[in-house]
Amino acid sequence: MEYSRGQVEEEVMGLIKNLAQDWDYSKPITSETLLFSELGFESLDAVVFGTAVQKHFEKQMPFAELLAELGKERRDLSISELVDFVRTQLS
């Protein structure tokens, strides 16, 4: 199945909001929201979220490598960058 960027963003956002229900984050979640410093992701949340994305799109994606890269470069990830990553993996 082909996904447009808009579709991927919508589905990724849906998965995040689903997970974020239990979290202590009250501001609106937009495509610029940062996963770790703003949403308060911990490694566990990132792993669970990565697993949910792969299951949803029925495709193995190199999430572990992505997370390792973020750790090494000490940088955060916005939802928009994440959508780009998923889209690249799906194409």
Binding site: F36, G40, F41, E42, S43, A46, L67, G71
Partner: peptide
């Protein structure tokens, strides 16, 4: 702060 992983340097929950 966390020692490991992508959230390194950020506070723990």
């Amino acid at each position: 702060p966390k020692f490991y992983g992508p959230a390194r340097g950020l506070p723990r929950k």
